[in-house]
Amino acid sequence: MELSRRGFLKLGAAATAGIVIFEPLGLKRALAAPPKGFSVSKRVGEKTTICPYDASGCGFVVAADNGQVINIEGDPDHPINRGTACSKGASLRQLAADNPRRLGKVLYRAPGGSEWQEKSWDWALDQIARKIKTTRDASWRERDDDGYVVNRTEAVASVGGASLDNEECHLLVKMLRSLGLVYVEHQARI
């Protein structure tokens, strides 16, 4: 459920200087009058998310203006972290799109190349699909050395997935197994 639908109390008239205060169950916070001249500098958060780091599953709230993050902090309603955040969770703000180190373009490196080239999604996915098919088909094994029917490729491998959502994992495993992959591994092994 998104916070905005739960009747979270919006304070502050100006859109940029507003504030969202939580109304946790059984813990309605009284709002003190702000000392003169000290309106809150930014909103706390409107929507909830779960931390992308360890598997504690801490809750966070995110405030964004026009899609750009302005604040991320612990979700005070969340029973596991109760609004808190360690030094990784507290820095989630720097994971946002305005971190210049984030990737925003498909990058391609040609054989023997010394640089990245920017490419379109359509070109890259088309190329990857063809490479998967070529490698799979060329390496296809209908039977193994003992003569059993195995219908697999050992030439294409997939690793990773522990930072994907469950829904993404489902589609990924469905795709990989249908392609006949057996080299399927991820973070749980290492």
Partner: peptide, 28 residues
Amino acid sequence: ASFEKEGSVTNSGRWSQWRYKCADPPGE
């Protein structure tokens, strides 16, 4: 990133928790 898409993740205690798209990703 995690807060730029919608879906569920399961923590160590086996709790599957839904998270929301809260912000836009960079570029494409």
